[in-house]
């Protein structure tokens, strides 16, 4: 038996009046209950895709179904299932968080009596209850971002779309936001996330799609994608050398080693290759390693590689 996908994007195209082709036949499927990452460089088409599925952008071709309901044909029913946290802050600066949440519920046909306890619950969970009666313009950037999440949750959507929700938010607030969203996801809400913090996507998301220049270039599970990473780049921080390291770098079978500066080496190590030979060769060459770290997280490395390959192919 096949389940109805939470999101089914079918051959979606979008060409703006300026002639820019933002989406070139995108197809995508997100299963119910998933925590899904939609990644891509700036200008790849992510926001256009999110704009279409939240009915803020008219598609040129194709369709989007939210839990089987067509956004083009049954916009109202589809929107009742979806909550949106947009990339840009879109709050009325003169309204108060409590009013914003209650009004949002009203736009979904939810009574004020039902909305009030819901608003209090989400504002408390997102640590905004003490600001409930202050105007939005007096809130910090992080508070506004959390308020947009509370607002999106007022209709208790089955599909929550978060477009770079943690942009410009400090690490502590970001972690509390992810804790909240993870709990929402565990409770059954399907979450689609776009972010430039790839370590977040790697930790939180089970499935992933990468979009570049209007086309999906990768669409698989996070595990399967990370398994494609055949080479990891390690950064070695060195002790103060007696003589320049660049002149005495050892040759190591299977590992590409190069000096970044006098105190740093980078080693490209194939997946499954042991590190013993690397350290043995460095020790023999009199190079002392103080610490070792990944150059970037695994998803970031893959992401850059996939996008760079796409540029090469273009």
């Amino acid at each position: 038996m096949t389940t109805t996908p939470a999101l089914d994007v079918v051959e979606l195209t979008k060409t703006y009046a300026s002639g820019v082709q933002a989406l070139k036949g995108v197809s995508l499927r997100v299963e119910p209950g998933d925590f899904f990452a939609l990644l891509g460089p700036n200008g790849a088409g992510k926001s256009t895709l999110i704009g279409i599925l939240s009915s803020l952008v008219n598609p040129s071709g194709g369709d989007v179904h939210v839990f089987g309901v067509s956004v083009r044909e049954q916009r109202s029913q589809a929107m009742a299932l979806l909550g949106l946290v947009p990339q840009e802050i879109n709050l009325n600066p003169f309204e108060k968080p409590l009013d914003i949440c209650i009004n949002q519920a009203g736009f979904y046909g939810i009574t004020r009596a039902a909305a009030m306890p819901r608003a209090e619950r989400y504002l408390r969970q997102l640590q905004l209850w003490d600001k409930a009666h202050q105007t939005v313009r007096s809130l910090s950037g992080g508070m506004k971002r959390r308020l947009m999440i509370a607002r999106a949750m007022m209709s208790e959507p089955r599909l929550l779309v978060l477009d770079e929700p943690t942009a410009g938010v400090d690490i502590e607030i970001r972690r509390s936001m992810w804790k909240f969203i993870s709990a929402i996801n565990r409770a059954g809400t399907t979450v689609i996330l776009t972010t430039h913090y790839l370590e977040e996507a790697e930790q939180l998301c089970r499935n992933i799609a990468i979009i570049d220049r209007g086309s999906i270039i990768e669409h698989s599970s996070m595990k399967r994608l990370l398994a494609k990473l055949d080479v990891e780049t390690l950064v070695l921080d060195l002790a103060e050398p007696a003589e320049p390291v660049a002149t005495r770098l050892p040759e190591i079978a299977g590992i590409a080693l190069h000096a970044v500066d006098a105190l740093t080496l980078e080693a490209a190590v194939p997946r499954g290759h042991d590190l013993n030979s690397l350290f043995a060769a460095l020790t023999q060459a009199g190079i002392v390693v103080r610490s070792l770290r990944n150059k970037s997280n695994r998803l970031e490395e893959l992401f850059v590689r996939l996008v760079d390959n796409g540029k090469g192919a273009a």
Binding site: S54, P86, N90
Partner: peptide, 17 residues
Amino acid sequence: SAKFGHYVEEMLASPMP
């Protein structure tokens, strides 16, 4: 103002006809 401040999207992305 709602258009300019983009908070008209609250209504446009809702099920309200």
